[in-house]
């Protein structure tokens, strides 16, 4: 059974930060489907960028969860609602 629980809220500025990273991450993921290794210049840029963006993305969640003390779950993850800035914990109960 899935648990959904509202665990906090971020500021609109913080929302903008993670939304931009989210968009970029999605863009890079979809770009990766069409850029082959033959395109050396773009491929290398993309691989590096995916790594960096992924790290920044994770860092944001680590930092904010610590800052706000969001409730967590060993089998769960947080989601943000870009409209309301609310953070939801989504977890699977055993």
């Amino acid at each position: 059974m899935e648990i959904r629980k509202n665990v906090g809220k971020v500021t609109p500025e913080e929302r903008d930060e993670i939304q931009a990273l989210f968009e970029r991450k999605n863009g890079l993921t979809e770009l990766a489907k069409i850029i082959s290794a033959d395109n050396t210049e773009l491929y290398e840029k993309l691989v590096k960028d995916m790594g960096e963006t992924g790290t920044k993305f994770q860092q944001w969640w680590d930092m904010k969860s610590k800052q706000y003390g969001w409730e967590s779950h060993p089998k769960g993850n947080w989601e943000i609602n870009f409209q309301t800035c609310e953070i939801t914990l989504i977890a699977k109960e055993a």
Partner: peptide, 14 residues
Amino acid sequence: KTEMYRRNHHWFNS
């Protein structure tokens, strides 16, 4: 997608 990325165009992020 390729061009927006290659050019570092600000629209690639949105």
